Amino acid sequence: MDSAPTQKPARLTFRDGTEDDVPELVALIESAYRGDSSRVGWTTEADILDGPRTDPEGVAAVISKTGSRILVVERDGSPIACCQLEHRGDAAHFGLFAVRPELQGAGLGRQIIAEAERSAREAWGVREMHMTVISVREDLIAWYERRGYRRTGKMTPFPYGNERVGLPKRDDLQFELLVKDLG
């Protein structure tokens, strides 16, 4: 009896984003956080925010800023995820993390964040990774805690009135700083 050949999962590749990637990256980020498409995954912010998560100008600014980059994650030559890394002294800031909604929950996030941490440590010699997460996103914060991030209790206000970051559906939003020691 012949058995069907097993197919190995396609390998992930990582590269720095370029200006040419901006439209596709904006669409990826929006799909992971806003609107009905984001509800396919678990990272949606659709219940707490309407409006854009980012825009082409914001993504282009991250790509062009000195000490900043967007790590593009590809499978079979197609972008499936991304994240921002920014050098800030002894730490790196991690943000704009997005995985295509239909691929969430399969372990990609763990691989991507580990590569982002390795890359920041190697490129900049940083000892910590910092990120801010909307404090009401308890499931997301718990996910980061399982990856070694700790809550600091340091809060910054949500930029109410700034439509470039979304239109809040509630009045209790703020950002909490999470930190991980990269050793």
Rank of each mutant, 00 (worst) to 15 (best):
E86A: 14
S68N: 08
W124K: 10
S135Q: 13
P168S: 10
L103D: 01
G89R: 13
S78W: 01
G148T: 05
P168Y: 07
V165D: 02
C83Y: 04
S64Y: 02
L167Q: 12
A114R: 11
P56M: 09
P56Q: 09
S68F: 11
R151N: 03
D76Q: 09
P159A: 00
T66W: 05
I112G: 03
R146F: 00
L96T: 00
L140D: 07
R75S: 01
R151Y: 02
Q104I: 07
E57I: 10
A123T: 13
P79K: 02
V59M: 04
P157R: 11
Q111F: 00
A116M: 14
A114F: 00
C83Q: 07
A116K: 15
G58R: 13
L96C: 04
R121I: 06
T66K: 07
E115D: 03
R170S: 10
H130C: 08
E138C: 01
D172R: 03
R75T: 04
C83L: 05
R69W: 07
A98K: 00
S68V: 00
V99M: 04
V136E: 14
R127G: 15
V73Q: 10
I70F: 01
D171M: 08
C83E: 06
A61Y: 07
G161I: 15
R170A: 02
K154W: 02
E122V: 08
G67M: 03
P79T: 03
S135L: 00
L177E: 15
E74W: 02
A123K: 13
E57M: 11
P101E: 08
E117D: 10
D172L: 09
Q111P: 06
L177N: 13
G125R: 14
R150Q: 10
I70C: 00
M129W: 01
A106H: 10
G166T: 14
E128F: 06
R75M: 02
T132D: 15
E138I: 03
L96Y: 03
A61E: 10
S68P: 06
V59Y: 01
P157A: 12
F97S: 04
A92Q: 12
R100P: 02
G107L: 02
R110K: 12
V136P: 13
A120Q: 09
A123Y: 05
R164S: 09
C83P: 05
P56K: 06
I113R: 04
E145N: 12
I113P: 03
G67I: 02
A106Y: 09
A116Y: 09
K154H: 14
M155G: 08
W143F: 14
G125M: 13
L167I: 14
R75D: 03
K180M: 04
D90F: 11
F94W: 06
C82G: 10
R151K: 08
A92R: 14
A116L: 11
P159W: 15
T152G: 13
T156W: 15
T152N: 13
R127P: 01
V99Q: 04
V179A: 11
A106W: 06
A91H: 01
F97A: 06
H87M: 04
R69S: 06
R88G: 05
R100F: 01
G166Y: 12
D139I: 07
I80K: 09
C83I: 10
E57V: 12
W124G: 09
E163G: 08
Q111H: 04
E163I: 14
D76R: 02
E176P: 00
G161N: 10
